[in-house]
């Protein structure tokens, strides 16, 4: 007899999704928000009229909900995250292949 769900779906399609999931669990564990507060924020993002019916954008919305909660808690402004993401993208382009990407490699990094 074969076990059920012989090929269960992997929970994450990309490493960033797993990261986003784990960050929320860790921040909740730390007490930054209650789980009810989190589901309310996530529900609001998922209820957005542009949400895809097949749920393919679920983790993109999860990240958007996380950013809104961080903003509401005064942890990080949206602009701060966007600017850092740009810095990471520049750092990646400036990093030779085969070398770990480090934020310090951003050519525009403040000294």
């Amino acid at each position: 007899m074969s076990p059920p769900d012989p090929a269960p779906e992997a929970p994450f399609d990309a490493p960033w999704q797993a990261q986003a999931f784990a960050m929320v669990v860790a921040l909740h564990r730390r007490g930054l928000f209650t789980w009810a507060e989190w589901t309310e924020a996530l529900g609001a993002e998922l209820a957005c009229a542009t949400a895809r019916a097949d749920g393919a954008d679920y983790y993109t919305r999860w990240v958007a909900a996380l950013e809104r909660v961080l903003q509401a808690r005064g942890v990080a402004e949206a602009g701060e995250i966007a600017a850092l993401a740009e810095a990471w993208a520049r750092a990646a382009r400036a990093t030779p292949h085969g070398t770990p990407i480090a934020l310090e490699n951003d050519p525009q990094a403040a000294p």
């Binding site: 990309a14 490493p15 960033w16 990261q19 986003a20 960050m23 921040l27 983790y59 993109t60 990240v63 996380l66 950013e67 961080l70 942890v75 990080a76 701060e80 995250i81 966007a82 600017a83 850092l84 993401a85 740009e86 810095a87 990471w88 993208a89 990646a92 934020l103």
Partner: peptide
Amino acid sequence: MEARLRALETVL
């Protein structure tokens, strides 16, 4: 999205 997650990780 990878860059965004790295940014979040950095801040947090």
